[in-house]
Design a protein around this nucleic acid. Structure first.
Lengths: 189, 189
DNA sequence: GCATTAAGTATCGAGTCGATACAGATATGG
DNA sequence: CCATATCTGTATCGACTCGATACTTAATGC
């Protein structure tokens, strides 16, 4: 590998690291921590099968113990609610409270959205494609889950049976139009 | 702003957040913490004017107190050395020890470099440009410093006076060829 | 010379994070 | 059918981050 290729890759890594850090450093607003914000964001975007401690653990690439602590903190702040799953009594279902949804309205990450917009439509598109490719490549190497949108999944069955709501072939459950746009632990492309 | 524009921006933000987190989660190797790795990387790339606690503080977008603690941890591990500046007795000069340089040889971020390489030369180039534009835009809004390469700075005076080494017009000091390639707290473009 | 500003350190409290150990619930396999 | 493995989540520990606040000491400005 040439020296310039090597340096170029490292420059990209430094940019990603620094942008990541910059986003995190703004994540201490309202008495929340960066990971706590990320958990709230996840819960607002994940479908009901994925809103569990283990789903969040996989998404964050963290560990059960750490996530458990984070969820305890969020619950004590009144931003999330835990309910035990009636079907599997080991499992815990998570959902945002009204206060949790309200908090996301002042998500510090929204400041950043403007800067993304300044790239223009074209730059934004290519950036999204490149970042997606990078993430996909990386996730394959570490056997991580993509957490893609339900609608694009191999298990997604559109209006099946005919004229009926969409369906998840893996979990054998009907899906609302809303749910098909959410992210899922089980998603595969 | 249309709903799709809004969603597109958020997708980019989520990608950046997630990639950042993914990079960090691999940053717990060898008993070091992600920020400690980042400090080592900084010290290996910053020129001598920038290798100070306050330089690192500005780079990380953190606070003096936090950085001070991080440096104490790194020094106790024998990875960096502190020397008091003879010119300004308030200031502390930082440098990597041999062990510190050796540690960077097993930087967990190197794993990630392969995934960047998988984008190909073109993808890598456009990604670097887009990320740079995003970072620049963002830094302007929060009045952060770019920490660009010395050679590209407005204060850089090439071979001045004629045939002599390069020079920094701001600090009024000569610069070696090596130093002109390093990053600097004072860099402006 | 005196106030201001700058560079670092010390300390506190809440929380992350990996590691380990654990509990209870559900699968699996003879 | 029951033992055993696996899965889901909690509890606890120690090192550390991080923002906040309160210092110390040194340089600078008037």
């Amino acid at each position: 590998m040439s020296g310039e290729t090597d340096r170029s890759r490292k420059r990209v890594l430094m940019l990603l690291e620094r942008l990541g850090r910059l986003m995190q450093s703004r994540g201490h607003e309202l008495g929340l921590k960066p990971v706590q914000w990320e958990a709230l964001r996840y819960l607002s975007r994940a479908n009901r099968f994925s809103r569990t401690p283990s789903g969040l653990t996989a998404y964050l690439g963290s560990t059960k113990g750490t996530v458990s602590q984070t969820l305890i903190a969020l619950e004590s702040k009144g931003l999330i609610r835990k309910k035990s799953d009636p079907g599997d009594r080991r499992a815990v279902r998570l959902e945002l409270t009204a206060a949790g949804r309200r908090a996301l309205g002042s998500d510090p990450l929204l400041e950043f959205a403007e800067s993304v917009g300044a790239l223009g439509k074209v730059g934004e598109g290519t950036l999204e494609r490149n970042l997606t490719a990078l993430l996909t490549e990386r996730l394959e190497q570490i056997e991580g889950r993509p957490f893609g949108i339900c609608r694009t999944c191999t298990h997604f069955e559109k209006n099946a049976p005919e004229g009926k709501p969409h369906r998840c072939g893996l979990l054998e459950l009907p899906l609302s139009a809303d749910e098909s746009e959410q992210i899922c632990v089980e998603q595969e492309s």
